[in-house]
Design a protein around this nucleic acid. Structure first.
Lengths: 204, 204
DNA sequence: AAAGCAAAGTTGACACTGTCAAGTTAACGT
DNA sequence: ACGTTAACTTGACAGTGTCAACTTTGCTTT
């Protein structure tokens, strides 16, 4: 491992990681449209094609960025779930709220994580899937737990329930992110209302 | 108006409409990534920059395509709502089902209609908004009607209810379209389950 | 009917993109 | 100390959206 502080002239030392960090920064600063391999390379101070020695193509770079996003999101879900001071209903609210808040705080990253760019046409890398699937499964597990405890008054099918729930948070998040729901100050209200629609006759 | 069957050498006659039709066809055939102005122009048999006399830029063309999509979707919603043989619960189911089916049948068009490409950064044209807003409002009106008739057991706030409902159908549709939910044969089951989650204690 | 003007369509050009091929540099294991 | 190989570079190509300047056509006005 090379000293990070020492600027090497030819070999960069940790280019792969640097590319991911800087690309993500560019994404957050100016949106996906401004993330080009050439701009990225130039900003990192390396030639146009240097990234190709660390990522097969642009798609692989994007997958790498999304990967880190899924780790973050997974962690957020875990934190909420493991908070022992909350009631089940509060856990449920927190999941919805935290999820949509994450999307709202990282709109372009969220867009990337769930966009067809990296998922459609089998273009997702193995590493991306390895990072995303546990995140998905955790949501199913949470739903299963809630359902077991009687939070929803429906047939006991955790997979279906979680697919609908995830659809709801994903949809609301997207409608905000994409600029169709425009009044950001109403996010909390909408989360609240979603909770009451799902739990209107819950035993909890 | 020029005879449509007669091929004119210089002036096309109805280029704007032709561009919209052919571009939409390209979209359905090979996805948004394959829709370029140059390919489109060449396929229509016209020079690269001819489209600029009918659309300010590529974004305006995309808005024009989305516009037609909203008219279709609006019509589908209307048809379902005006079917007098259905109970309220059936109306609700049909809305969810038809909506997701539309998205599933026209994945790339749906993606375009609701994607940030045409909505974010104030890039939507006035005509697009004129076509989309009535479609949105119709959904709010439907929800209001359902709520008035006691379909949901929550506070009487049609806007919030419709935002959550739309979020749900939009989210489920997107998760299928973008290749994250992959088993298309389960669409109907998920729609069913969504209905029961919302109506589990409804009076209807 | 002739003139003229605006709309519609053209070619050339520019800056930008992702990616390949071929060459160069430097680091590391034998 | 040497040679292999990974990391990095430059040159090149095909493709993109869009602008400016030019040509053709059709319609309106005199």
């Amino acid at each position: 491992m090379k000293d990070i502080n020492e600027k090497s002239t030819y070999h960069h030392g940790d280019l792969r990681e640097t590319l991911l960090v800087v690309a993500t920064k560019m994404l957050q600063e100016s949106g996906i449209k401004e993330v080009s391999l050439r701009k990225l390379a130039s900003r990192v101070g390396v030639s146009r094609t240097a990234p190709y020695h660390h990522f097969k193509d642009k798609n692989a770079l994007l997958c790498g960025m999304a990967e880190k996003g899924f780790e973050q999101l997974h962690q957020i879900n875990k934190n909420g779930y493991e908070d022992e001071e909350l009631s089940i209903r509060e856990h449920f609210y927190r999941f919805i709220h935290d999820y949509i808040q994450f999307a709202h705080n990282n709109p372009d990253l969220y867009e990337l994580m769930f966009g067809r760019t990296i998922w459609k046409d089998k273009s997702s890398t193995q590493e991306l899937r390895d990072s995303a699937y546990p995140c998905f499964q955790f949501q199913v597990a949470m739903t299963q737990e809630w359902q077991k405890k009687g939070l929803f008054n429906v047939d006991d099918n955790a997979l279906r329930a979680s697919q609908v729930l995830w659809g709801t948070v994903h949809g609301i998040a997207k409608l905000f992110i994409d600029g169709i729901y425009t009044d950001n100050s109403k996010i909390d209200e909408i989360c609240d209302y979603a909770v009451s629609m799902f739990l209107s006759n819950s035993k909890q």
